[in-house]
């Protein structure tokens, strides 16, 4: 079964909005979308991050985020803020 969860995380600067579609049987992410008014360089790392989350097990979310953002620079937010938003979205999708 697919479930959708959304969460909003306020960073030091900017808001991170995460929306995930999770397969509640396999516990894998089917679709990820992250929007907001944060500053990330290079900007297109955001789409790479979303791509790396597709198909990932929910338990791998933190590692995928840290890996995808390893070379990127965030201004006013951190990879941990993104992880918090995504993990809350996972929870909202009814997966623990």
């Amino acid at each position: 079964m697919l479930a959708v969860g959304s969460a909003v995380k306020r960073a030091q600067k900017g808001v991170i909005k995460a929306r995930l579609t999770v397969d509640t049987e396999t516990l894998r992410i089917v679709e990820a979308r992250i929007t907001g008014d944060f500053f990330l360089y290079p900007e297109d790392a955001l789409w790479k991050l979303e791509e790396s989350l597709r198909g990932a097990a929910v338990a791998e979310v933190a590692d995928r985020v840290r890996d995808a953002l390893k070379e990127a620079k965030l201004v006013g937010s951190t990879a941990e803020d993104f992880i918090e938003a995504l993990m809350e979205a996972v929870e909202k999708a009814g997966v623990r």
Partner: peptide, 21 residues
């Protein structure tokens, strides 16, 4: 304030955004 908000008398009068590409 807060990296890139320009504030006068405690009120925001300008926001800035940068890009490098």
């Amino acid at each position: 304030e807060n990296v890139n908000d320009i504030v006068v008398g405690g009120r925001k009068v300008s926001g800035t955004a940068a890009s490098f590409r």
